[in-house]
Amino acid sequence: MLQLQKLTKRYPTGDLALNAVDLEIPKGQVLALIGPSGAGKSTLIRSINRLVEPTSGSAILDGVNLTELSSGALRRARRRMGMIFQEYALVERLSVMENVLSGQLGYVGFWRSFLRKFPQPAIDEAFRLLERVGLDQMADKRADELSGGQRQRVGIARALIQDPQLLLVDEPTASLDPKTSRQIMRLICELCAERGLSAIINIHDVALAKMFVPRVIGLKLGEIVFDGGPDDLTPEVLTDIYGEEDWEATIAKIDDDDDSDPV
Protein backbone atom coordinates (compact mmCIF):
# COMPACT_ATOMS: atom_id res chain seq x y z
CA MET A 1 0.00 0.00 0.00
CA LEU A 2 2.90 2.33 0.78
CA GLN A 3 6.10 1.94 -1.17
CA LEU A 4 9.23 3.95 -0.65
CA GLN A 5 11.62 3.81 -3.58
CA LYS A 6 15.15 5.13 -3.17
CA LEU A 7 13.79 7.85 -0.88
CA THR A 8 16.64 10.23 -0.17
CA LYS A 9 16.92 13.38 1.88
CA ARG A 10 19.98 15.58 2.03
CA TYR A 11 19.65 18.66 4.23
CA PRO A 12 21.05 21.98 3.02
CA THR A 13 23.80 21.54 5.61
CA GLY A 14 25.00 18.53 3.59
CA ASP A 15 23.86 15.88 6.07
CA LEU A 16 22.51 12.83 4.32
CA ALA A 17 19.55 11.97 6.54
CA LEU A 18 18.05 9.29 4.29
CA ASN A 19 20.11 7.31 1.84
CA ALA A 20 17.99 5.65 -0.87
CA VAL A 21 15.54 3.96 1.49
CA ASP A 22 13.42 1.18 -0.07
CA LEU A 23 10.49 -0.03 1.97
CA GLU A 24 7.16 -1.64 1.26
CA ILE A 25 4.30 -1.70 3.74
CA PRO A 26 1.22 -3.81 2.98
CA LYS A 27 -2.25 -2.65 3.95
CA GLY A 28 -2.99 -3.04 7.64
CA GLN A 29 0.59 -3.61 8.74
CA VAL A 30 1.95 -1.81 11.79
CA LEU A 31 5.69 -1.53 11.89
CA ALA A 32 8.12 -0.01 14.35
CA LEU A 33 11.05 2.05 13.19
CA ILE A 34 13.95 1.89 15.61
CA GLY A 35 17.40 3.38 15.52
CA PRO A 36 19.71 5.76 17.36
CA SER A 37 19.05 9.49 17.54
CA GLY A 38 19.97 11.09 14.25
CA ALA A 39 19.42 7.89 12.27
CA GLY A 40 16.76 9.63 10.18
CA LYS A 41 13.58 8.18 11.73
CA SER A 42 11.77 11.51 11.98
CA THR A 43 13.01 12.55 8.57
CA LEU A 44 11.71 9.30 7.08
CA ILE A 45 8.13 9.72 8.23
CA ARG A 46 8.15 13.46 7.48
CA SER A 47 9.42 12.76 3.97
CA ILE A 48 6.34 10.65 3.35
CA ASN A 49 3.80 13.42 4.05
CA ARG A 50 6.35 16.00 2.88
CA LEU A 51 6.59 18.03 6.05
CA VAL A 52 10.20 17.48 4.99
CA GLU A 53 10.71 17.73 1.24
CA PRO A 54 12.63 14.64 0.07
CA THR A 55 15.60 15.29 -2.22
CA SER A 56 14.94 12.37 -4.54
CA GLY A 57 13.17 9.04 -4.76
CA SER A 58 9.48 8.44 -4.44
CA ALA A 59 6.86 7.55 -1.87
CA ILE A 60 3.82 5.88 -3.41
CA LEU A 61 0.60 5.67 -1.43
CA ASP A 62 -2.08 3.56 -3.13
CA GLY A 63 -0.60 4.20 -6.56
CA VAL A 64 -0.16 7.95 -6.06
CA ASN A 65 3.39 9.25 -6.06
CA LEU A 66 3.36 11.70 -3.16
CA THR A 67 6.68 13.28 -4.07
CA GLU A 68 5.32 14.61 -7.36
CA LEU A 69 2.07 16.16 -6.14
CA SER A 70 1.27 19.85 -6.51
CA SER A 71 0.46 21.67 -3.30
CA GLY A 72 -3.31 21.27 -3.72
CA ALA A 73 -3.06 17.55 -4.46
CA LEU A 74 -0.58 17.16 -1.61
CA ARG A 75 -3.11 18.66 0.81
CA ARG A 76 -5.72 16.13 -0.36
CA ALA A 77 -3.19 13.31 -0.03
CA ARG A 78 -2.23 14.43 3.47
CA ARG A 79 -5.82 13.83 4.58
CA ARG A 80 -5.15 10.12 4.06
CA MET A 81 -2.12 10.18 6.37
CA GLY A 82 -2.74 10.81 10.05
CA MET A 83 0.20 11.95 12.12
CA ILE A 84 0.84 11.54 15.84
CA PHE A 85 3.61 13.46 17.57
CA GLN A 86 6.02 13.02 20.44
CA GLU A 87 5.05 16.17 22.38
CA TYR A 88 1.42 15.68 21.24
CA ALA A 89 1.56 18.95 19.22
CA LEU A 90 -1.97 19.86 20.25
CA VAL A 91 -2.95 23.49 19.84
CA GLU A 92 -2.67 24.23 23.54
CA ARG A 93 -5.10 27.11 23.74
CA LEU A 94 -7.92 25.41 21.86
CA SER A 95 -10.43 23.02 23.38
CA VAL A 96 -10.17 19.26 23.08
CA MET A 97 -13.06 19.28 20.61
CA GLU A 98 -11.43 21.95 18.42
CA ASN A 99 -8.22 19.96 18.45
CA VAL A 100 -9.98 16.79 17.36
CA LEU A 101 -11.96 18.62 14.69
CA SER A 102 -8.78 20.25 13.38
CA GLY A 103 -8.12 16.82 11.87
CA GLN A 104 -11.01 17.65 9.52
CA LEU A 105 -9.45 20.86 8.19
CA GLY A 106 -8.47 19.19 4.94
CA TYR A 107 -12.15 18.50 4.24
CA VAL A 108 -13.62 21.82 5.36
CA GLY A 109 -13.41 25.25 3.74
CA PHE A 110 -11.75 28.27 5.30
CA TRP A 111 -14.85 30.11 6.49
CA ARG A 112 -16.45 27.02 8.01
CA SER A 113 -13.26 26.33 9.91
CA PHE A 114 -12.97 30.02 10.90
CA LEU A 115 -16.52 29.97 12.30
CA ARG A 116 -16.01 26.45 13.74
CA LYS A 117 -19.05 25.29 11.75
CA PHE A 118 -17.96 21.72 11.15
CA PRO A 119 -20.40 19.35 9.42
CA GLN A 120 -22.53 17.33 11.83
CA PRO A 121 -21.16 13.94 10.65
CA ALA A 122 -17.65 15.14 11.57
CA ILE A 123 -18.89 16.21 15.00
CA ASP A 124 -20.59 12.82 15.49
CA GLU A 125 -17.36 11.10 14.53
CA ALA A 126 -15.39 13.35 16.92
CA PHE A 127 -17.65 12.32 19.80
CA ARG A 128 -17.35 8.64 18.82
CA LEU A 129 -13.56 8.91 18.72
CA LEU A 130 -13.34 10.77 22.03
CA GLU A 131 -15.43 8.03 23.59
CA ARG A 132 -13.24 5.37 22.00
CA VAL A 133 -10.06 6.90 23.44
CA GLY A 134 -11.77 7.40 26.79
CA LEU A 135 -12.11 11.19 26.83
CA ASP A 136 -15.85 11.69 26.25
CA GLN A 137 -16.16 13.93 29.32
CA MET A 138 -13.27 16.16 28.25
CA ALA A 139 -14.57 17.67 24.99
CA ASP A 140 -14.90 21.18 26.40
CA LYS A 141 -11.64 21.28 28.34
CA ARG A 142 -8.73 23.27 27.02
CA ALA A 143 -5.95 21.05 25.70
CA ASP A 144 -3.36 22.42 28.15
CA GLU A 145 -5.49 21.26 31.08
CA LEU A 146 -4.96 17.59 30.22
CA SER A 147 -2.29 15.16 31.40
CA GLY A 148 0.30 13.78 29.00
CA GLY A 149 -1.54 10.52 28.37
CA GLN A 150 -4.83 12.34 27.80
CA ARG A 151 -3.20 14.76 25.37
CA GLN A 152 -1.77 11.91 23.35
CA ARG A 153 -5.26 10.37 23.19
CA VAL A 154 -6.55 13.65 21.76
CA GLY A 155 -3.65 13.54 19.28
CA ILE A 156 -4.72 10.03 18.26
CA ALA A 157 -8.34 11.14 17.82
CA ARG A 158 -7.19 14.09 15.70
CA ALA A 159 -5.25 11.75 13.43
CA LEU A 160 -8.14 9.29 13.12
CA ILE A 161 -10.84 11.83 12.29
CA GLN A 162 -8.93 12.43 9.06
CA ASP A 163 -10.14 8.95 8.08
CA PRO A 164 -6.57 7.99 7.15
CA GLN A 165 -5.20 4.86 5.50
CA LEU A 166 -1.82 5.32 7.07
CA LEU A 167 -0.65 6.55 10.45
CA LEU A 168 2.71 8.24 10.78
CA VAL A 169 3.61 8.09 14.44
CA ASP A 170 6.64 9.97 15.73
CA GLU A 171 7.85 8.83 19.17
CA PRO A 172 4.34 8.55 20.63
CA THR A 173 5.52 7.52 24.07
CA ALA A 174 8.81 9.38 24.55
CA SER A 175 7.20 11.95 26.86
CA LEU A 176 5.07 9.49 28.82
CA ASP A 177 5.57 7.32 31.89
CA PRO A 178 6.04 3.55 31.33
CA LYS A 179 2.47 2.54 32.13
CA THR A 180 0.87 5.27 30.02
CA SER A 181 3.34 4.44 27.25
CA ARG A 182 2.04 0.89 27.10
CA GLN A 183 -1.58 2.02 27.14
CA ILE A 184 -0.96 4.47 24.31
CA MET A 185 0.92 1.88 22.23
CA ARG A 186 -1.84 -0.64 22.83
CA LEU A 187 -4.49 1.91 21.87
CA ILE A 188 -2.69 2.81 18.64
CA CYS A 189 -2.25 -0.84 17.67
CA GLU A 190 -5.86 -1.72 18.54
CA LEU A 191 -7.20 1.19 16.50
CA CYS A 192 -5.03 0.21 13.54
CA ALA A 193 -6.41 -3.32 13.75
CA GLU A 194 -10.03 -2.10 14.05
CA ARG A 195 -9.74 0.16 11.04
CA GLY A 196 -7.29 -1.81 8.95
CA LEU A 197 -4.71 0.99 9.02
CA SER A 198 -1.06 0.70 8.24
CA ALA A 199 1.27 2.55 10.59
CA ILE A 200 4.90 3.49 10.89
CA ILE A 201 5.80 4.04 14.53
CA ASN A 202 9.12 5.68 15.36
CA ILE A 203 10.10 4.46 18.75
CA HIS A 204 13.11 4.63 21.03
CA ASP A 205 11.93 1.98 23.41
CA VAL A 206 12.93 -1.34 21.82
CA ALA A 207 11.26 -3.42 24.52
CA LEU A 208 7.98 -1.57 24.02
CA ALA A 209 8.20 -2.00 20.25
CA LYS A 210 8.77 -5.75 20.66
CA MET A 211 5.64 -6.02 22.78
CA PHE A 212 3.25 -4.56 20.22
CA VAL A 213 4.37 -4.76 16.62
CA PRO A 214 4.80 -7.66 14.20
CA ARG A 215 7.56 -6.01 12.14
CA VAL A 216 10.58 -3.94 13.12
CA ILE A 217 12.77 -1.83 10.85
CA GLY A 218 16.21 -0.78 12.08
CA LEU A 219 17.53 2.48 10.70
CA LYS A 220 21.14 3.57 11.01
CA LEU A 221 22.69 6.64 9.39
CA GLY A 222 19.79 6.91 6.96
CA GLU A 223 19.89 3.30 5.79
CA ILE A 224 17.79 0.28 6.67
CA VAL A 225 20.03 -2.24 8.41
CA PHE A 226 17.36 -4.55 9.81
CA ASP A 227 13.94 -5.71 8.70
CA GLY A 228 12.31 -8.54 10.57
CA GLY A 229 10.01 -9.71 13.33
CA PRO A 230 10.41 -8.69 16.95
CA ASP A 231 11.92 -12.07 17.86
CA ASP A 232 14.71 -11.60 15.33
CA LEU A 233 16.05 -8.69 17.38
CA THR A 234 19.10 -10.43 18.79
CA PRO A 235 21.88 -8.70 20.73
CA GLU A 236 23.96 -8.85 17.53
CA VAL A 237 21.26 -7.01 15.56
CA LEU A 238 20.90 -4.34 18.24
CA THR A 239 24.66 -3.92 18.37
CA ASP A 240 24.61 -3.45 14.62
CA ILE A 241 21.92 -0.76 14.87
CA TYR A 242 22.95 1.08 18.00
CA GLY A 243 26.52 0.04 18.75
CA GLU A 244 28.13 -2.11 21.43
CA GLU A 245 26.09 -2.50 24.64
CA ASP A 246 24.71 -5.25 26.86
CA TRP A 247 21.32 -5.94 25.25
CA GLU A 248 20.11 -8.92 27.29
CA ALA A 249 17.86 -6.86 29.57
CA THR A 250 16.28 -5.03 26.63
CA ILE A 251 15.22 -8.08 24.74
CA ALA A 252 14.13 -10.12 27.76
CA LYS A 253 10.47 -11.08 27.49
CA ILE A 254 8.35 -8.58 29.43
CA ASP A 255 4.94 -9.66 30.67
CA ASP A 256 2.19 -7.45 29.37
CA ASP A 257 0.18 -6.42 32.39
CA ASP A 258 -3.30 -6.20 31.05
CA ASP A 259 -4.45 -2.80 32.29
CA SER A 260 -6.43 -1.20 29.56
CA ASP A 261 -8.19 1.30 31.81
CA PRO A 262 -7.77 4.82 30.50
CA VAL A 263 -5.70 7.27 32.50
Binding site: N49, V91, Q104
Partner: peptide, 9 residues
Amino acid sequence: EAITATGAS
Protein backbone atom coordinates in the same frame (compact mmCIF):
# COMPACT_ATOMS: atom_id res chain seq x y z
CA GLU B 1 3.43 21.06 11.75
CA ALA B 2 0.56 19.05 13.19
CA ILE B 3 -2.08 21.27 11.55
CA THR B 4 -0.17 21.18 8.25
CA ALA B 5 -0.08 17.39 8.40
CA THR B 6 -3.89 17.21 8.47
CA GLY B 7 -4.04 18.60 4.93
CA ALA B 8 -5.08 22.09 6.04
CA SER B 9 -4.57 25.00 3.65
